[in-house]
Nucleic acid binder design. Structure first.
Length: 582
RNA sequence: CGGGGCGUAGCGCAGUUUGGUAGCGCGCACGGUUCGGGACCGUGAGGUCGGAGGUUCGAAUCCUCUCGCCCCGACCA
């Protein structure tokens, strides 16, 4: 491509609505542009990057035995109504009506449609297993789109669905997909981890997220410093931490006046003079949750947080919601900040770490009062279940080493769905015994457009993007300098040579000053740059520079094309076969 | 949905407190000088001041309503 003909509207200044690096650089580099909140258009460079990601995804999915299909984005409401998700999806579902008043929704995901596609024709175990995938726009009315292209209301996603005869075979399909994902993420040049994850309300069992490790990521992860354990904090486990407080005599419980101090930190500060040795770890934090109509008290140590997903599981409900201030007053008779398990009339769930505190301070269920010297089992009862949020430094559940905290962007998610959809939708087959059984499904997503942003979050510097070769919009940029004819001519013939070798080159033939060309080249993040100046040309040399290197390398003119092609493949890029034949 | 902020030229902003006929930088067009890390001089084009209503002789500025965007939180198959 000739730069002079290309539509690459770069921006010198940072658009004010952009905050994260990927958002800023995608906008500045002329890759994408915002059309509305969480809605973006792809300019030529952005489209090229997406195509590169798609290409890798397609190849690995095809190699893994999946077949590509394309499902509609506009869905008659009856599909989601059939599984109840038309309602349960809630506000995230884009709904609309046609001219006749019939209801539709835009596809936020396609389990229903694919299940319908398969149930029409798959009737026998002989037709299984089957794995179908598509790369398509998904629509979700996110409560809060953010970080540019990382969380959008319209986004490009690859979703694959497997259909098997039973759970064991479904697990095999799952394993195959998981391996394919490893190959995909490696080829895309991303630093990622597979973490244990919550399967959400999809009714899944086995599941794993492919998390791209990035500081600005939305998800919190813990990764073992020693073994390969890694998990989303939503589901992270830990062994019981040894408790700091001794298990000696616990004095009798005493009510203390704590006017206006409700938070853990405030109470600790307030009580320190009268109760030396008080610390957040010796406080018990009591939070009230609404779970299926009932109000439940969750108790964790003062320095811990409640993991709401674990709490919901412990209670056997699908979700818990923090109780309103009014509910708290009703249930405890006190203002928020003074709830505690002693005297609480209702279900209490206690984290093991909290249960182990031998001499605790808790809220007294009376405004402006706390109880000191309280002990589980003596002063109050409560069911013990692991409901705390795992923290950095906690011991790894599988090897005991310290867990480290990371933040990540969920780039992919694989999980076994079981018969959740097939049973509801009557997607069945006949097994060899002639018995009718529901298909056992798995589903596997990759956020294609999100990965474009994730790659930038991971690969950029102050000057711009550093695309991994495998997804760079162009593999090399040719930068002739000066207004003499020589450099441009040399660049033109190098350009032809490179194209003949199948290298994707961008020829900066603009009549711009060197500084402008260098700045744009760095901003766009093209992995290789060949600088062609009159001085070098006189010596028969060109400069070859990697975007991620400080120094350029001088290369004889005649060898440059071959060297570039070698670099491209060496860095994980592919030469275009169509061009290579030319 | 709760809290905060912002809508003025393609982009970034000033002007709003104290009403008086819209300005700066970048970008863009033209001319000239420059040419290895976002050059310089000159000339010029470009604006429903987010929208509607109101107050006023007069509204970007004051009042009411409304739409949109960003950030924090809630939420996130």
């Amino acid at each position: 491509m000739r730069y002079s003909k290309a539509f690459i509207p770069t921006l010198k200044e940072v658009p004010k609505d952009a905050t994260t690096p990927s958002h800023v650089l995608l906008l500045r580099g002329g890759f994408v542009r915002m059309v509305g909140a969480g809605i973006y258009e792809m300019l030529p460079l952005g489209r090229r990057v997406l195509s590169k990601i798609e290409r890798t995804v397609r190849r690995e999915m095809d190699d893994a035995g999946a077949q590509e299909v394309l499902m509609p984005a506009l869905l008659p409401a009856e599909y989601f109504q059939e599984t109840g998700r038309y309602d349960s999806f809630g506000g995230a579902l884009f709904r609309l009506k046609d001219r006749k008043g019939a209801e539709y929704n835009l596809g936020p995901t396609h389990e229903e449609i694919i299940t319908d596609m398969v149930r029409r024709d798959v009737k026998s175990y002989r037709q299984l297993p089957l794995n179908l995938y598509q790369i398509q726009m998904k629509f979700r009315d996110e409560p809060r789109p953010r970080a540019g292209i990382l969380r959008c209301r319209e986004f490009l996603m690859k979703d694959a669905y497997s259909f098997d005869v039973d759970e064991a075979h479904a697990l095999e399909s799952y394993a195959v997909m998981r391996e394919a994902y490893h190959r995909i993420f490696k080829q895309l040049g991303l630093d990622y981890r597979v973490v244990a994850a919550d399967s959400g309300a999809m009714g899944g069992s086995t599941s794993a997220e492919f998390q791209v490790l990035v500081q600005t990521g939305e998800d919190s992860l813990v990764v073992c410093s020693s073994c390969d354990y890694a998990a989303n904090v939503e589901v992270a486990e830990t062994t019981l931490p040894t408790d700091a407080s001794s298990a000696d005599e616990t004095p009798d419980a005493t009510k203390v006046h704590t006017p206006g101090v409700g938070s853990i930190a405030d109470v600790v500060a307030f009580l320190t003079p009268t109760l030396p040795g008080i610390s957040p770890a010796r406080m018990l934090k009591s939070l009230l949750y609404t779970a299926d109509e009932r109000v439940v008290m969750a108790v964790v140590r003062g320095d811990d947080d409640v993991n709401e997903i674990r709490l919901a599981r412990a209670l056997g409900v699908s979700e818990v919601v923090l109780a309103s201030a009014e509910d708290v007053r009703k249930a405890t008779g006190a203002q928020v900040g003074f709830a505690g398990p002693v005297g609480f009339e209702g279900e209490i769930v206690l984290d093991p770490a909290a249960a182990a505190v031998a001499d605790a301070v808790i809220g007294a269920n009376e405004t402006d009062h706390h109880l000191a010297h309280v002990r589980h089992g003596r002063d109050f009862e409560g069911r013990v279940a692991s409901i705390r949020m795992v923290k950095e430094g906690d011991p790894c559940p599988s090897c005991g080493a310290e867990l480290r905290s990371f933040r990540g962007i969920e780039g992919g998610h694989v999980f076994v769905l079981g018969t959740h959809y097939s049973a509801k939708m009557g997607a069945t087959f006949l097994d060899p015994e002639g018995e009718e059984k529901p298909l056992v499904m798995g589903c596997y997503g990759i956020g294609v457009s999100r990965l474009m942003a994730a790659a930038i979050e991971q690969h950029h510097d102050d000057d711009g993007i550093l695309w991994p070769m495998s997804i760079a919009p162009y593999q090399v940029i040719l930068t002739p300098l000066g207004k003499e004819a020589g450099p441009l001519q040399a660049a033109e013939s190098l350009y032809d040579e490179l194209r003949a070798l199948g290298v994707e080159a961008l020829l900066d033939d603009r009549a711009e000053r060197p500084g402008v060309k260098f700045k744009d080249a760095d901003l766009l993040g093209i992995p290789l740059r060949v600088t062609i100046g009159q001085r070098g040309l006189d010596a028969g040399m060109l400069e070859l520079k990697r975007r991620d290197a400080k120094e350029a390398e001088k290369v004889p003119l005649a060898e440059t094309a071959a060297r570039v092609a070698t670099w491209v493949t060496g860095l994980g890029g592919e030469l275009s076969p169509r061009r290579a034949r030319a």
